[in-house]
């Protein structure tokens, strides 16, 4: 088990290194002179040259890369060109809304998709299956902001059940937090529900054709025991994998959802940084989100090994 853990973590390191390299190249090849932007409109060429020297822009590629990697490793992501605040501080301010949205979305998606996919597989070609397949294809076809505006239009504008947009910090008022987040989380979860439903259905159908399921049924176990204890449990690995991989979809969706619902999270930070060409912020958010994605998938991998001893070797 220990060697399995070590191997998985070791395999994730080069990936993170390359992610940091890609993010660094982004800043390196970005058009425009960061020194000139930092110096401001009134700066003389001498001031700009001095700034270039202090922040190390005159160093060759590999030296700057080395400094960048070391700083990133220490948790220093540089300074925003526009607000002149450390990128880590900017990210810290924006982390809570994004994490809240992501966690709520994942909970809703799993709670809807796993039962739906299992029932669809249990009575394949039945009514629930057809509904599940329709959701499975619609979720992939209707973009998240379209669903978001549909929900705002019906539930917020017409029925006035939910606030149109905004965010309430968890510490202020947890019911307000939930009330503000429920529509964004529902819209964001559609594509995720589609993904998990499809995989759950496919893997449960696969498992249900196995011999041990026939054995379980023939020894008189009730259907729900067969489904939950035997089928779903053996289908858990592909489902967990897709939940992990789906986090990538989720992160793309977060950017859009936060824009539609005016949630002050990392997605908004990224969009604003792009509009202002604030490269250190773009870079920092990119590295953080990729690191979260890699970490989630690492946890998923490790969780299989805990639940399924066959995978450890």
């Amino acid at each position: 088990m220990i060697s399995f853990l070590a191997r998985r973590i070791f395999a994730a390191l080069p990936v993170m290194f390359l992610v940091a390299l890609i993010a660094f190249s982004l800043l390196y090849f970005a058009p425009g002179d960061p020194a000139a932007v930092i110096a401001g409109d009134m700066a003389q060429p001498a001031d700009i040259a001095a700034i270039r020297e202090t922040i190390g822009l005159n160093q060759p590629f590999h030296v700057r890369l080395g400094i960048f990697l070391w700083n990133t490793f220490r948790g220093d992501l540089g300074i925003s060109i526009f607000s002149h605040k450390p990128v880590t501080a900017l990210i810290a301010q924006r982390l809570e809304p994004t994490l809240s949205l992501a966690v709520l979305t994942i909970i809703i998606s799993i709670a809807v998709a796993v039962p739906l996919g299992t029932l669809a597989a249990w009575r394949a070609r039945g009514l629930i299956d057809r509904i599940a397949m329709a959701i499975g294809i619609l979720g992939f076809s209707v973009p998240v902001f379209v669903i978001a505006y549909l929900m705002i239009w019906f539930l917020s504008v017409k029925l006035a059940w939910f606030p149109v947009q905004g965010y309430t910090p968890l510490a202020t008022n947890w019911s307000g937090w939930f009330y503000n987040l429920i529509l964004p989380a529902l819209s964001l979860s559609t594509v995720y529900i589609a993904l998990i439903t499809r995989i759950t259905r496919a893997s449960v159908i696969e498992v249900l054709s196995q011999d041990y399921i026939r054995t379980a049924r023939s020894k008189g176990l009730s259907e729900h025991v067969v489904l939950l204890r035997h089928a779903l449990r053996n289908a858990a690995v592909p489902i967990a994998t897709i939940v992990g991989i789906g986090v990538a979809l989720l992160m793309g969706g977060v950017v859009v959802t936060e824009t539609v619902f005016a949630i002050p999270g990392l997605g908004r930070l990224l969009v604003d940084a792009i509009l202002q060409r604030d490269y250190p912020v773009i870079q920092g958010v990119l590295i953080l989100l990729s690191a979260i994605y890699v970490a989630v998938n690492l946890l998923v991998d490790i969780s299989y090994a805990i639940f399924d001893p066959r995978i450890r070797n």
Partner: peptide, 22 residues
């Protein structure tokens, strides 16, 4: 494989956004 894994670790939408920023 390693390079592909790194590119796939950056969610596709975010990678496209970052490239567009360039």
């Amino acid at each position: 494989s390693r390079v592909l894994e790194a590119f796939m670790a950056i969610p596709a939408v975010l990678l496209a956004i970052a490239l567009m920023a360039l």
